[in-house]
Every structure is written in structure tokens, then in C-alpha cells.
Design a protein around this nucleic acid. Structure first.
Length: 338
DNA sequence: AAGACGGGGCC
DNA sequence: GGCCCAGTCTT
């Protein structure tokens, strides 16, 4: 028997209103603050993103503030959170909002989705929470809750199961308080209907849950297993030349927009291009770092160069705190220049 | 439809 | 060590 939509809405909304966490982005009505929160929370747990949300708003309190900042300043605030294209896209979005929408976050779905970094989820979240639009916001939590309550047992990443999840999620959104409803489903997925061992005894809608009724909740939703993590051989170099460190700003790809050390060969090439002569290169520390989808293995080198750098990406040691680095590089540099 | 893109939490 | 997370963009 199908879950009762009316019971689902009533029970879950009542639970949410009584038990929701007191989160800073739930205390504001400012569409810009809500937009910032949604960007920060893309593929990121509330616990991990919260400090960054606060820090970001403290640094850029208004959309015009953000639009006026440089990309480097924005990335400095984002440093450590990951998925750095989010920061670049949010920055670009702020500029578009100033240019095309007179500095006001647009209040319709189409205009929201036209902004860089805003897809179906974020448009629905901002639209419903900030502007009361009856739009679904289907994130990982919603997929999990819907797959369980409606016992959707096929791969939710593709095909008809994916469509069914989106369809059900959209149909459940009530006319009244759509923003509260979307947050209620996400809240349930975040603290009760959790991935591994869901807390069904605490669940306000377990009476309507088809997965719970048949005891299969822990095995839903179903996702294809992911490919193996490749190993990348690397050589990182710290070049010492009167206190300068050689850094390369990444254009695109991994860590786009961040500064990082280049590989040994690239450093030698670049040093020569700068009119410098690599004099000595010595290995000083093994490098082993695992990311979510790849692993670095190799060595870090210290090198000394002769000559005087004319120009290029030389950053003085005492200015390292002013450029966006990934945390791994910051730690490596700290150990290298100690 | 699949792959790229971070980093951290948790078992 | 593997899985997952308040996703989006590009092939």
C-alpha cells in the first residue's frame, strides 16, 4: 500500500517544526545569505560547511561586496573547503546578479538556474526557502528518504528510478511552506534517515515507510560502485631564493584557481624561463596524500636557484598567508621552510 | 550516462 | 579503506 501523502506532510512538518536544528542560515531571510549557504552546502555536510558559511558572510556581507572582491580574495576565504569551482561560480554569480538583476537575487527558477553554479537543486532550494516558490530541492538526503519511503530499489543515479525519485519529491512539495518542507526532508535525511543505520525508531514517518515495513531500509538507496582510485606520481618543489617560494596558479582542473607547487621538471623549466639557473635539488620529504578520487605518491624537493628572478609566480615566504593554497600544500610548505 | 571535482566524518 | 555527503558542469 502506498504511503499516504497527507500523513507524510503532516507528520514530517510537525516533527521538523519541533525538532529542527538551530542553524544560522535558518535565522535569516536574506536571499543572498541563503544563496551562500546553498553553495557552501553543495556536497558538504552542515557540520563541515558551517564555519565557512559564517566566515564567507563576514568577509562578503552583501552581493555587491562579493562582486567587488577579487577571485583570489574569494578563494582565500574558501580555502580548505574543497570543490573550489563553487567559490569561483558563486563569485561569478554575484557579478551577474549585480549586472543583470540590479544586485537582487532573482526570485524565479529560470533566472536562478541561469546563474553559474546553480543547478536544479540550488535553484529549488533558494526559490523555495528564500522566495516561497513551490519547487522541489532534490539533494542526497531527499533521494535517500524518497527511495526508502517509496521503496525504490533500482539505481537512483540513472534511468526510471532516478526519474521516479524526482517525480515523487516534486509531487510531495506542498503549496504552503514549500521551503520548510524541503528543509524538513533534508533534516530528516541528515539526522534520522541516515545512510548506514537509519534511526527508524526516532522517525516521524516510519508508519508510511515501505522500506521500513519490509526491513530493507539499510540497503536503500542503491548506487553503482565507483571505480578505483588512481595513483599519481608527483614531485613537489620548494625553491629557495632569498626567501621566495615557487608557486604556480592553477587555471583549471584540480584545485583550479588555487596556488600550488609545480613538479620538479616544470620548476626547472620555469626557473630557466625566469632567467634563473637551478643549482641544487635535494629530496626532503616523502609525499603521500589521498583525495577522494586520486592519490599522490612521490617526493618533495628543495631546490636552490642562482640568478635573480625577473618576474613570474614567485611568492615571498612572508606573503604565503595571502594566497589561496590547498591545506596540503600549506602543511608541506610549513615543513619545508621551517 | 559517466567522469571530474575536495575534504572530512564515520565505521 | 570504503562510503557518503544541502551538486554542478563537461564530455
Amino acid at each position: 500500500m502506498e504511503p499516504d501523502r497527507r500523513v507524510l506532510r503532516r507528520q514530517l512538518l510537525a516533527w521538523y517544526r519541533a525538532r529542527k536544528r538551530d542553524l544560522p542560515f535558518r535565522r535569516t531571510r536574506d536571499p543572498y545569505a541563503i544563496l551562500v549557504a546553498e553553495f557552501v552546502l553543495q556536497r558538504t555536510r552542515v557540520k563541515a560547511g558551517l564555519p565557512y558559511y559564517e566566515r564567507f558572510l563576514a568577509s562578503f556581507p552583501t552581493v555587491r561586496n562579493l562582486a567587488a572582491a577579487s577571485e583570489m580574495e574569494v578563494l582565500r576565504v574558501w580555502e580548505g573547503l574543497g570543490f573550489y569551482n563553487r567559490a569561483r561560480n558563486l563569485h561569478r554569480a554575484s557579478k551577474a546578479i549585480v549586472d543583470r538583476h540590479d544586485g537582487e537575487v532573482p526570485s524565479d527558477l529560470a533566472a536562478l538556474k541561469a546563474l553559474p553554479g546553480i543547478g536544479d537543486y540550488t535553484a529549488g532550494a533558494v526559490g523555495s526557502i528564500a522566495f516561497g516558490l513551490r519547487a522541489p530541492a532534490v539533494d542526497g538526503n531527499v533521494i535517500r528518504v524518497v527511495a526508502r519511503v517509496f521503496r525504490i530499489a533500482d539505481y537512483v543515479t540513472r534511468g526510471p528510478a532516478k526519474e521516479r525519485v524526482k517525480e515523487v519529491a516534486a509531487e510531495l512539495v506542498p503549496d504552503e511552506a514549500p521551503g520548510e518542507w524541503n528543509q524538513a526532508v533534508m533534516e530528516l535525511g541528515a539526522i534520522v534517515c541516515v545512510p548506514r543505520v537509519p534511526k527508524c525508531p526516532d522517525c516521524p514517518i516510519s508508519s508510511e515507510c515501505l522500506a521500513f515495513a519490509s526491513g530493507v531500509q539499510a540497503s536503500l538507496p542503491v548506487r553503482p560502485t565507483k571505480p578505483r582510485v588512481p595513483v599519481v606520481r608527483v614531485a613537489f618543489v620548494v625553491a629557495e631564493d632569498e626567501g621566495h617560494v615557487f608557486l604556480v596558479r592553477k587555471g583549471e582542473g584540480l584545485h583550479a584557481g588555487m596556488y600550488r607547487e609545480s613538479g620538479e621538471d616544470a620548476v626547472r623549466r620555469h626557473l630557466r624561463a625566469l632567467g634563473l639557473r637551478p643549482v641544487r635539488v635535494e629530496r626532503f620529504a616523502p609525499v603521500s596524500h589521498r583525495f577522494s578520487h586520486l592519490r599522490w605518491e612521490g617526493w618533495a624537493y628543495r631546490c636552490r636557484a642562482a640568478g635573480e628572478a625577473r618576474a613570474g609566480e614567485w611568492i615571498a615566504l612572508d606573503r604565503l598567508s595571502h594566497v589561496p593554497l590547498i591545506p596540503f600544500h600549506r602543511r608541506l610548505l610549513a615543513s619545508a621552510v621551517r
